[in-house]
Design a protein around this nucleic acid. Structure first.
Lengths: 136, 136
DNA sequence: AGATTAAATTAGAATTATTCTAATTCCACT
DNA sequence: AGTGGAATTAGAATAATTCTAATTTAATCT
């Protein structure tokens, strides 16, 4: 049964990488590298910024973390590994996860159009979040 | 008849903004701010980096230019104003434009899922471009 | 097991990207 | 033409990311 995967223990990580991974996992939001650094520092005060970046790259390549970027100059990191999409509020900047079931289909169509061998699709919605759509 | 719009003349821009806009329009690719700066400098040698950024923001808000960002640290700018999607090659990094007709539909579905008031959707495909799918 | 070398990882330093703010230019209205 | 205020510019500051030399870890050979 495809139960939604819980945070599994990952073994064989260096202390630095573990600190980075746990910092992302404990975060409710989608932290920037800088926010990850601050959080990782609480676990491992000696960690450097460069190591945070190295770890993020490593974890990303290992599929444990995902990088997302919008037009706001700093990349953000996301603990979810299952495929999903993002909505970003143009008023307050809030970032929300959601998943569209039809993306498998979409992947095929997009790949044909672009003449690419598909690996993944990602969809970004811009608009107003529930809070911001109230006040004009 | 909805012919594809050619580069229309835009009047009322400052020389700096015009230089930035023309630099983007003449570029075949999707230049970074830094590349735009280099090109704008050929037209207007006194222009500063900060002004390029200011101009990019202005042009973006005026809808004459679009900002796109992936996980590669520097935002890129796109002359196309008509809505379209992007495919990025995971091997060589090439960026290709394409348009999916079903995105209007998608916008509605995504907005419902995310509970947002929709403004726009954008889709990014990752995979191998025609050149890179040859060599393994 | 201990020494030796290679590979992986770290983090200080450097580079690159972006934003801030004081100075300048441009207008609208005398 | 002169003044006030908004818009725009660009030098300087800050923030984000990458480079590389140093360190640590792991593998290999006595």
């Amino acid at each position: 049964m495809a139960r939604h995967r819980q945070q599994e223990e990952v073994s064989g990580l260096t202390p630095q990488r573990r600190a980075v991974l746990e910092s992302i996992r404990e975060s409710e939001a989608h932290p920037t590298a800088s926010e990850v650094y601050a959080a990782a520092r609480e676990r491992l005060p000696s960690i450097s910024f460069a190591t945070v970046y190295n770890s993020l790259r490593y974890l990303k390549e290992a599929g444990l973390v995902r990088e997302i970027s919008f037009g706001d100059s700093a990349s953000r990191y996301d603990r979810e590994t299952d495929r999903h999409d993002h909505a970003i509020c143009t008023s307050c900047g809030k970032l929300v996860d959601f998943d569209l079931p039809q993306t498998a289909e979409l992947l095929r169509i997009a790949a044909r159009k672009a003449r690419f061998k598909a690996e993944s699709v990602h969809l970004t919605l811009r608009g107003l979040c529930p809070d911001c759509r109230q006040e004009p």
